[in-house]
Computed example of a mutant assay.
Amino acid sequence: MYKNDRLNLILDILKRRKTISMQELQALTFSSNSTLRRDVITLEQDNKVIRKYGQVELVKSKNVEFPYQFRNQEHETEKIAIANMATDFIGDNMALFLDSSSSVSKLIPYLEQKRNLIVVTNGLFTAVALNQYSNVKTFLTGGRLRTGSGSVLGGFALDYLNKFTADIAFISCSSVDGEGIYMSSAEQSNIKQKMQNSAKQTILLCDSSKVGHRNYYKLCELSGISALITDKEPGADLVAQLKANDVELLY
């Protein structure tokens, strides 16, 4: 079994059990003691699990920003479907803000079909992927690269964004409910807010696993976005609040 498959298997087990002994986890994963130990160390370094007293515990996702490689694999089918719907908002000759989220990065393959786009992003992996398209003029913010996240953050990045305006800002979030849109990182929120304030409209891409929850840091009210694109119909409360704030809902 490949390493990523083993890591995902461990996480799937922990999502059901929350806490499990190393001995039992070894039996369920059919791994050697040394292989399991290395895999658990990898997950611990990525803030996915905690090791203590011969047990492994799943880190609660609230208020934790996980590395890009994990975020990019989670709910990938749903994110691709969401990105496909989002392309209907993009026309030729547009300027776009793309945040560094894995959800927004799924838009990239669809941009090849458009002509003469300008994209400004704080996403390192997003900028690298866009580099292959001659129809897209890509601008990457300066600033501090947060380890593992692929995100360029901080004052330099905010100052750089001051130089641009855009037709659309495409952003994602940690969670959304009827009271607003949330993030687990103030630094990430600052970048997204700057993009929102400098764009004619903001479109939120958010898979259904993030709907109906909240984090400690509020990115904005629902009125701060023009549209929410997700993969399933949200609960009645959120639907009603989106309608009250004149936010278009697509799923």
Rank of each mutant, 00 (worst) to 15 (best):
K18L: 13
K163H: 13
Y68P: 04
V136R: 02
L9M: 10
K114H: 09
L161K: 05
Q69G: 00
A236I: 14
V239Y: 07
V120D: 05
A95F: 06
V120M: 12
Q132C: 08
E65M: 06
Y2I: 10
F139M: 09
K15C: 11
N215P: 00
V152Y: 01
L43G: 06
L14P: 00
Y53R: 05
K60W: 14
E221S: 07
F164I: 10
V49P: 00
D167Q: 05
V119A: 07
L228C: 05
A27R: 12
Q196M: 15
V211Y: 06
S102G: 03
V40N: 09
Q23C: 10
T77F: 15
D5W: 09
L25P: 00
S209V: 11
V119R: 02
V64S: 09
S174D: 15
I50T: 07
M85V: 12
K163I: 11
Q45N: 10
N162K: 14
E187K: 10
Q241E: 15
G155Y: 10
E74A: 11
G148A: 07
I90E: 00
T87M: 13
L130E: 01
I10V: 13
A166M: 07
Y182P: 04
S103P: 03
G154F: 06
G224A: 10
A169F: 08
S185W: 05
L124F: 14
G143K: 03
V40A: 13
I225E: 01
C206L: 14
N135R: 04
E221C: 00
R71S: 14
N190R: 13
S174T: 13
L228T: 01
Q188R: 09
L9C: 07
Y68S: 02
L204Y: 02
A157L: 08
M183P: 00
K194C: 15
Q26H: 08
S34M: 13
K79M: 07
N197R: 13
S175Y: 07
Q26V: 12
L117R: 00
G212T: 05
D207P: 01
F164Y: 11
N47E: 12
N190H: 14
I203C: 09
K192E: 15
M195Q: 11
T19Y: 00
Q23M: 10
K210N: 15
I82Q: 04
C220L: 06
M85W: 04
L25S: 01
A127K: 06
D177E: 13
L9T: 06
E221T: 08
L14M: 06
Q73L: 15
E221P: 00
A227D: 05
G142V: 06
A199L: 09
I203W: 07
L238G: 04
D46M: 06
E44W: 02
D159T: 11
K18S: 14
E233A: 12
A199E: 05
E44H: 02
Y68I: 08
G143T: 09
I171F: 03
N245R: 11
E248K: 13
Q73E: 12
I203H: 04
